[in-house]
Design a protein around this nucleic acid. Structure first.
Lengths: 340, 340
DNA sequence: AAACAATGTTGGAACGTTCCATCATTGTCT
DNA sequence: AGACAATGATGGAACGTTCCAACATTGTTT
């Protein structure tokens, strides 16, 4: 079986000839601008359908000297937060006729440099960096050439970048406040001191504890963003003498590690130990886990980023200020009042 | 703060002038083809760096009348299988200088039609459909216009499509054979009869049981691909009289539901009940879950799809036959020999 | 020495659009 | 009636590349 005969695609001139008009009229009809008589308009529409005409995006980009394309650079497709954020981005950009061009920073052979080069060659009108990127001269340079938004990163690479992200500090306070309201006082934190989110969430934890007059109970054990790290930290926390009645973990994965450790220490959740996580991943929803977790408004963040971008594309616009989005708390079965 | 002064980007003519050569020489140097003297070559390279010249992709696409771009249509960015597959695709396409243009079918307002239109306008050289797409006339039409590969779907939309996917039948047999080797005989299956993967995996389960002379123990309970469905089915399975000693679930989520149900029925895993899943999702790796699961070679599938595509792009190539990739089994703590 | 191949270099045409200045027709206001 | 605005239609120039035919120079074979 061979490939089907693929003849040269119809161009605007073919359409013009078929409709008996000039190429300019076809162009006007297609773009919906200018004045065209009803008769010619329908003739053109007819010819377009007839010939299966599709405008050539490359030629259009060249003619308009703009691409209607936004570059989106991910650093981890696997992170559910990023996925939602990209969906939010996409939905809003689509409405405005902007196309997204996605790529994965890490996947790229030369650590993203070649990806960025490709995107810039495509004449992208804006750049969205999703997640925290490693330092890279190419990134900093790219950010200076096109309006750039860092989505879900605590800070952007260099100047000319607007950051849209979740308020990790506020989210942590939300979770801790929930535990306090339940009656907990001995609330420990499993942190991830090596990461930006880890630092912000710890700050929120400590602030809320202090605000509630529980400064003396502040206790942070270093872990990381993985189940393994949470497990290790929790074992340390639960094996000691004055063990906490509640743990706020830096994210859901770490919280899972805490749950495992609690099980190993024969502590029932939530009867003996309340556990709260962060990110509200699909994991937290699972019946076997049912984890109270802070929900980051990632879809909304993506949408907001798109709005800022669109505004930034207007001529004469200025660099908008950074934005922090307020998260919410999803209460599930892993938190309850401590027993007396 | 206003946008930084953005002057008109340098073109190939600017480079040619700066290097004291004709535009043709610059073009030859940039593409690395043809004969150019060493002196002029270095002069051009110098000028390129000097001016920060970046070739314009739209102009290049127009001139070459090809785009070096492959359209990738996802139907669910959240599915880890798809993510790995896309990573595999990307890695191989990148090596060959092909750019990926991704989009989400469902996210698109007009159910993918406008996404496909955009992709075709971009003159994509090939199309990769990742996951099972809903029927759509636009999809069928698109597949006829460019070489198309359906990745991870049991069947492609219409003609001219090559399917690259995992051998679900073989995977199911792998899991069941493992359980049989452990000594289980009463092995039940929690299925998902409404889905294509569900049907294939059930077929594998039954085939392996019959091959081992265990036809009389074949027992399938209908569920679906969710935790909820697995839970419901498992409750039915475990509450009855002659309950199985092992369960093979249609996927990891359903297996999780089985685990929950076992817990509720006070059955220890794996002592009282072995459980195997399918997909080897990150979930299965979690310490609290430690699920034996069939690993689908999704990264490899992506790579293979890319190879087929590249071959298909050669002039005079023919439609390659469908390919099934053989999965492997990841044995973890949820399966063990039945007690006597 | 002539013929030919290999190596360098060039400018013009093409790619398929949009943009723009121009022109034609009609209707409306003074 | 004349001036002007609104509507309608046009062809040529741009956009920034690649492609190609043609021409120059050198080295090698007959």
């Amino acid at each position: 079986m061979t490939a089907p005969e693929r003849k040269r695609a119809a161009t605007i001139l073919d359409v013009a000839a078929a409709a008996g008009v000039s190429k300019s009229v076809v162009s006007l009809v297609l773009r919906g601008t200018g004045y065209v008589s009803a008769a010619k308009r329908t003739a053109v529409e007819h010819a377009v359908l007839e010939l299966g005409y599709r405008p050539n995006a490359a030629a259009r980009a060249l003619g308009e000297s703009r691409s209607r394309t936004v570059g989106v650079v991910l650093n981890d497709m696997r992170n559910p937060w990023f996925v939602s954020a990209v969906e939010g981005l996409n939905s809003t950009l689509n409405e405005r006729g902007l196309q997204m061009l996605m790529g994965d920073f890490r996947l790229d052979s030369r650590s993203g440099e070649s990806l960025l080069k490709k995107l810039l060659e495509m004449n992208i009108e804006a750049l969205v960096l999703v997640g925290t990127m490693p330092e890279s001269p190419g990134l900093t340079a790219a950010a200076l050439q096109v309006p750039t938004i860092a989505l879900g990163a605590p800070t952007g690479p260099g100047a000319n970048v607007t950051v849209v992200t979740n308020d990790d500090d506020a989210g942590a306070r939300l979770a801790v406040a929930h535990l306090i309201a339940l009656g907990h006082r001995r609330i420990a934190h499993v942190g991830a001191p090596a990461t930006a989110v880890g630092i912000a969430r710890r700050r929120g934890y400590e602030a809320e504890m202090r605000a509630a007059g529980l400064a003396e109970f502040i206790r942070t054990v270093p872990g990381d963003l993985s189940e393994e790290g949470g497990h290790r930290a929790a074992l340390e926390l639960l094996s000691g003498g004055d063990r906490p009645t509640a743990v706020f973990a830096v994210n859901d994965m770490a919280a899972l590690g805490v749950l495992s450790a609690a099980e190993e220490c024969r502590l029932a959740v939530p009867a003996d130990l309340s556990v709260a996580g962060y990110d509200n991943t699909p994991l937290a929803r699972l019946r076997r886990i049912s984890l109270t977790s802070v929900d980051t408004a990632s879809f909304a963040a993506g949408q907001r980023a798109a709005e800022l971008l669109i505004a930034r594309l207007e001529p004469g616009s200025t660099l908008p200020p950074d934005e922090l989005l307020v998260p919410t708390l999803e209460v599930r079965g892993s938190t309850a009042a401590p027993h007396a």
